[in-house]
Design a protein around this nucleic acid. Structure first.
Lengths: 156, 156
DNA sequence: GAAAACTTGTTGAAAATTAAACCATCCTGA
DNA sequence: TCAGGATGGTTTAATTTTCAACAAGTTTTC
């Protein structure tokens, strides 16, 4: 089966849009990273974990679920939660029914820490993303990336 | 100046769109990374460098420019180009006028290697991004992220 | 024309991420 | 019931990225 067919290349406009997306998203991610690190000593990955935990019932989730919500591999999550535990922002405990399971829980300290970080973060997101984009275009982004997430999800 | 004013939080729709973007973009990036690595042993960062070089006059650029085009720090670029040089895909030489300058150049081998990788890559981009998105929404993404890139650019 | 200030690119170590091996627990079916 | 296989999570090692310090070259300033 080595009859490699000619790929359908992107047309000029698609190419331009795709490139714009790559450049914009990389630069934005870098900025958010630096911002979060400078002001609160947090990685974006760490921040994401704190957010998901804060929204969970009892501010607690099993590692596997947390990994899913935060779009991280389990291995990565283990390392990152270990770091957050050192900082006292998260604590780990076994979960009742399944003895393999581990629950990560946001500590009191973690919650107040997150509150502060979230304020700054949302301001930056606004400054460099939301406020720069036409509201209709933002909706389009929501639609588009929901579709992408779903499409990619099927293959994981 | 510690009169921290209340941040303007995102409204429900903005929140939803922002989250969708984060999730979709992270999952897409992961997928593209894995795909490129599995099929060609390349990082996305490495791939990006090869692409920029291939488009430059004489397939050659100064490190600083390359860093700019590929949205990478100079340090990171140094390391990455070193790796690519080991693989024989890129070569480095001093540049004439400014003795501090270093030119990175795509080798013949690098070019043919990139050709193959690009085929597969564009196919995956199509499968999981372009073809999943309404054409009008893609245009919106182009507009929006151009604006974001410009906005972020000003602050670097 | 020389000192100060800045730019370019690299380096080495620390931090983070990925990949693969691993252990313990849980589930399934014969 | 118990053997085989799957699942959940951690761990170790390899790879990649970041951070800070640096050497060498250029520009500015006086």
């Amino acid at each position: 089966m080595e009859g490699m067919s000619e790929p359908r290349w992107l047309d000029a406009a698609q190419q331009r849009d795709w490139r714009a997306y790559i450049e914009g998203s990389v630069r934005l991610a870098d900025l958010l990273d630096r911002d979060l690190k400078a002001k609160h000593g947090l990685t974006t990955a760490e921040y994401e974990i704190l957010v998901r935990l804060s929204e969970a019932p009892d501010r607690r989730l099993r590692m596997a679920e947390l990994a899913e919500y935060a779009s991280q591999s389990r291995s990565r999550l283990s390392h990152t939660v270990a770091r957050l535990e050192c900082k006292g922002l998260v604590s780990r405990g076994t979960c009742g029914d399944d003895k393999r399971g581990v629950n990560a829980e946001l500590t009191e300290k973690g919650l107040t820490f997150l509150d502060r970080a979230a304020r700054d973060h949302v301001t930056t997101v606004r400054d460099f993303f939301i406020d720069v984009i036409d509201p209709e275009d933002l909706k389009a982004i929501g639609r588009a990336f929901s579709a992408v997430a779903e499409r990619v999800g099927k293959v994981r």
